[in-house]
């Protein structure tokens, strides 16, 4: 299927190397060019991922909480830099990649990843509500550890497509059916 994103520019803020590679590969195959963070203001697509230290929240000290929340704040900063260009073009895609645990919370590690991702779901809902009429979508993909990076990247590419333009403010779970939460 033609995703109709040939010539779009994507910024990938993904620290996991396999996931970054998979996202880059699938988007480049659709004719998307990858831009560096310094060129955030020229991006049509921003894909960001959770990347927190794996300290259980109750065992953390305040500085560690703020360091992890810094991932959120830095992402907001980059997202804002990209917004004017998206508004001018009346086209844009924000996609957050977070752990599937954020939907079915447990204490199997990655607590701040899950907490930051829950904040991100709120943020993407806000962005989608404020910018849907301007052709900008904001969605989240929650993926589980067992999922091949290519499967997550495929969902990223789909959400970037023109055909997915009416999908906004939603959360897509890519977990191979392992999650137990219905809503």
């Amino acid at each position: 299927m033609n995703l109709e994103i040939l010539g779009r520019r994507a910024l990938l803020l993904v620290s996991n190397p396999e996931l970054l590679h998979a996202c880059r590969t699938v988007l480049e195959a659709e004719g998307v060019s990858i831009v560096v963070p310094e060129a955030a203001s020229t991006a049509d697509i921003v894909v960001a991922a959770a990347a927190c230290a794996d300290v259980p929240i109750l065992d953390a000290v305040e500085e560690e909480l703020f360091a992890d929340w810094g991932v959120f704040v830095d992402t907001v900063d980059i997202y804002q830099q990209a917004l004017p260009n998206m508004l001018d073009n009346r086209w844009g895609r924000y996609i957050w990649l977070g752990p599937a645990r954020a939907k079915s919370l447990d204490t199997e590690g990655g607590e701040m990843d899950a907490a930051v991702t829950l904040g991100m779901l709120g943020l993407h809902k806000v962005i989608s509500g404020e910018n849907a009429a301007a052709g900008i979508t904001a969605n989240a993909i929650l993926y589980s550890r067992a999922v091949p990076p290519e499967a997550t990247a495929s969902a990223v590419a789909f959400l970037c497509s023109v055909g997915a333009g009416y999908l906004t403010g939603v959360t897509v779970t890519v977990d191979g059916g392992t999650g137990s939460a219905m809503f």
């Binding site: 259980p56 929240i57 109750l58 959120f72 954020a102 919370l105 447990d106 204490t107 607590e111 899950a114 907490a115 930051v116 829950l118 904040g119 991100m120 779901l121 709120g122 943020l123 809902k125 806000v126």
Partner: peptide
Amino acid sequence: HVLPNVVRPAVAGFHRMMADR
């Protein structure tokens, strides 16, 4: 309500995880 919109879910999640523990 942008600020509470984004931070409240994280707080709810923290409490959910704390309940487990």
